[in-house]
């Protein structure tokens, strides 16, 4: 411990330090980077954590996927070729929807409040967090593809990369919505989990991720048509199988962009009102 007596030098030093340090406001980009890096650090320190939210998609892949061989509507070739893109979307959806729980926890511990008192822009607090979702989402996609490669799954690299780009945009939106839900559920954990669990499976089933919807009843197909995820799933299926030039791909990209825009809009609004 240093001496407690204040010397004139220390006084000047402090005055100078204070003047230099706290009077320069970072740009929105810098703010966003600060938040992004802060969110990313625990993932980098503990990469295994990304597997946690993947458990359900992996269970479906292993225990549900095999039931799909020769199932009508899953295409000609291997069932994995139809099923894997859906599982990738599912894993993005789950990790994005789950991520609000991190903020929910920080709302309770005081870490969020601490950041609200800093000059960080509210929008950066949300955008930085939402952008970070891309990292675990890419890691998860690589894991799923790697797990499937030894089996009857053919990788089309160019299409897969484009699919990952579209899914990254979608994940930003899902993540942002999850953060907005966390902010609305402050001090009421149950609200976050209830809403999240209630919405997750209907969206999942109505996007035709587990089973094809094409032969379902009309009302169900109508619901699927208004589910933006459906378009992302359809686009992913084409892209993972190497079909890049298609209107469905454009529609998928559009749906992902819509989700991202909606998520960021709602998320930033919630963050601005956060206290």
């Amino acid at each position: 411990m240093s001496a407690t007596v204040m010397t004139p030098d220390a006084e000047n030093d402090q005055a100078r330090k204070s003047a230099q340090m706290s009077r320069r406001r970072p740009s929105l980009l810098q703010d966003t980077t600060t938040v992004f890096m802060r969110e990313l650090r625990p993932v980098l320190h503990n990469p295994f954590s990304v597997v946690f939210s993947m458990i359900q998609p992996l269970v479906f892949l292993g225990l549900f996927g095999p039931l799909l061989s020769d199932f009508p509507g899953t295409g000609e070739g291997s069932a994995l070729q139809w099923f894997v893109p859906g599982i990738v979307v599912m894993s993005c959806l789950f990790s994005g929807a789950f991520t609000g729980s991190n903020l929910l926890f920080e709302l309770q511990t005081g870490a969020h409040e601490r950041m609200l008192v800093t000059p960080l822009r509210r929008s950066a607090l949300l955008i930085g967090r939402a952008l970070k979702e891309i990292v675990p989402m890419v890691m998860q996609t690589v894991i799923i593809v790697a797990v499937c490669l030894p089996f009857d799954f053919e990788l089309h690299l160019a299409g897969t990369v484009i699919a990952v780009l579209i899914l990254a945009v979608m994940t930003i939106g899902i993540g942002a919505l999850s953060y907005a839900l966390a902010l609305a559920s402050k001090d009421q954990d149950w609200l976050f989990w209830t809403v999240q669990q209630t919405l997750l499976f209907p969206f999942l089933l109505l996007a035709g991720i587990l089973l094809p919807i094409d032969d379902g009843p009309g009302w169900l197909r109508t619901l699927a048509d208004i589910n933006p995820l459906t378009y992302v799933v359809d686009a992913s299926r084409l892209l993972f199988n190497g079909e890049i030039a298609s209107t469905a791909v454009l529609q998928g990209a559009g749906a992902a962009a819509f989700l991202a825009a909606l998520g960021l809009l709602v998320g930033i609004r919630s963050m601005r009102r956060s206290n």
């Binding site: 706290s22 009077r23 406001r25 802060r38 650090r41 625990p42 320190h45 503990n46 991190n102 926890f105 920080e106 309770q108 511990t109 005081g110 870490a111 409040e113 601490r114 008192v117 800093t118 000059p119």
Partner: peptide, 18 residues
């Protein structure tokens, strides 16, 4: 905000952080 420091009732550091 840029001129004040604030130490709230809770813990400011994220629990998964270093």
């Amino acid at each position: 905000r840029s001129r004040i420091g604030y130490i709230g009732q809770g813990n400011g550091a994220g629990h998964t952080q270093r």
